[in-house]
Amino acid sequence: MLDRLHDTLETFATFTDTADRTSLLLSYADLYKEVPASVATRPFDRSHLVPHCESEAYVWANKQPDGTLKLYFAVENPSGVSAKALAAILDRSLSGLPPSEIAQITPDIVEQIFRQNISMGKGMGLMSMVQAVRSLAKAVQ
């Protein structure tokens, strides 16, 4: 089940102060790791580009021998801090789960994670990142 994601969302729910939530988001952004060259190299295949994301984020979902998925991300915009934070959260919360479980995530987790830290232009792109992960998971179910 999506226990790790729920735990993460519960953690964010306890951070009601804007500054504290910002620090938590930045700590996740610092954990962001770009897709390894063994999976994809530049120029990245545009089919992995997340639509509507101004941070120019790419996502891959590779099936592992045990049937679970491993998520990889690339965020090309150096100012894409929010996208990097979300990439790290999604990877840590969802990688290792079967596609059928990952396919259950919904874009509303973006609001739960970012709340007042979400900016107008970021919201749509971040929700598209979640939607892209969901679509990839559905495709390989």
Binding site: T22, S79, G121, K122
Partner: peptide, 10 residues
């Protein structure tokens, strides 16, 4: 002054 609230703290 930014649109993205995470940028300055980052």
């Amino acid at each position: 002054s930014n649109e993205d609230l995470l940028l300055y703290p980052s």
